[in-house]
Amino acid sequence: MADSTGAQAPKPSSSVKLVLLGEAAVGKSSLVMRFVNNDFQENKEPTIGAAFLTQKCNLPTRTIKFEIWDTAGQERFASLAPMYYRNAQAALVVYDITKASSLTKAQHWVAELQRQASPGIVIALVGNKFDLANPSSSSAAEGEGEEGEEGEGDARKIPAATAKAYADEEALLFFETSAKTGMNVAEVFTAIANAIPETSLKGPRGAAGQSGRQQEESRVNLTGPRDNVGAKEGCAC
């Protein structure tokens, strides 16, 4: 247990559960891969089964360790398991700026979060695939009805202003990113880390909050050393 064996002078460090939401194939996992490994894979397979990734975010006065929970394909369906939202202190809701329907889906997830998650959750709305909005991008627009106003050769369907206006209305953080180039990715996570109130990082957080130190004590570790704690105790032999 305990307080760190690290060599650095201890800066307060807290874990933050962050859930990742958004329509399939908007680049949720790619954003995380960029953030965690500074890596990008062009044709990443859909995510299955990974539990969560962790990555530290160093702020001047504290360190935030993100536990990033991907949706593992469940975003296709109506409801997500409660364990997914439980104690989440931050959410990254991702849409694809080249796909109009993905913002609608993102709005659905924001509403879900407001209904299901802890009241103080920090939500960031992120429009990904900014690289495709660049007019010099090789990908051409393929949709019929151009909603974007960014001109020819631009795959953008959702104007930044539209999403920004929605984000402001719902008090969400807002960024446009590119997991491919890395643009704004670190900034999103830093902004989230800064937006999480100091008070919610310390001590027990009540029924809806995340487990603090006090509740942590009651936790049973299933993977610790088993046989040095006297498994014979109950055998009375």
């Binding site: 299955i48 089964g49 593992a72 394909g73 469940q74 296709r76 398991a81 409660p82 364990m83 997914y84 439980r86 936790r219 049973v220 570790n221 299933l222 610790g224 088993r226 704690v229 006297g230 498994a231 014979k232 105790e233 109950g234």
Partner: peptide
């Protein structure tokens, strides 16, 4: 008793029993 710590021998998953295990297992498969 003693397998995961002295003086107790049974555990329950936090947040509502077997439901939690079911959710985690489902999540592993989507």
């Amino acid at each position: 008793i003693g397998v995961f710590g002295r003086g107790f021998g049974a555990v329950i998953p936090k947040w509502g029993g077997l439901s939690e295990i079911a959710q985690v297992a489902c999540r592993a498969c989507a």
